[in-house]
């Protein structure tokens, strides 16, 4: 994936969040790094951009996230509620324990369509019903 050039946001540079469109009806936010109180605002910005596009299936790839703090969980949960309000589900790709454990222990994994790989989303598999917008 593309890693954006270092930005002038000081120590929050440990997180990157990049928007792309891997398929015509899929909008993807690829997140890499550590999500904590310093970097959660950058994740929040990325999620806002992701959900502003209401016509495609929103997917967040957290496969390269090596730490997820409660501040990051809160941002993800907020985005899940926003997606629900839009009548669609927010898809999460989570593979590492650093991401799956916080989601599971807090029960917040139930708010998302969870996937173990990006291919699974692009081919329509996953933990729940297919999202609207797949028409």
């Amino acid at each position: 994936m593309l890693d954006p050039a270092p930005e002038s946001s000081g120590r929050a540079g440990a997180l990157s969040a990049t928007l792309s469109s891997p398929a015509p009806d899929v909008r993807l936010l690829t997140v890499a790094g550590e999500v904590d109180t310093l970097t959660a605002p950058r994740l929040a910005d990325g999620l806002t951009g992701l959900l502003d596009d209401e016509r495609s299936t929103p997917v967040v790839d957290l496969a390269d996230v090596s730490f997820l703090a409660s501040s990051g969980l809160a941002v993800l949960i907020h985005a899940a509620h926003r997606a629900t309000g839009q009548g669609r589900a927010l898809h999460l790709v989570a593979t590492s324990r650093a991401v799956t454990r916080p989601l599971e222990i807090t029960g917040s994994d139930r708010l998302f369509e969870m996937h173990s790989g990006l291919e699974e989303v692009l081919t329509g598999g996953g933990s729940g019903p297919a999202p609207r917008g797949a028409d």
Binding site: D36, F67, L68, A69, R97, R101, P102
Partner: peptide
């Protein structure tokens, strides 16, 4: 994982 997150929090 839990301890790392708890200490962070």
């Amino acid at each position: 994982s839990d301890l790392r997150m708890a200490v962070d929090e």
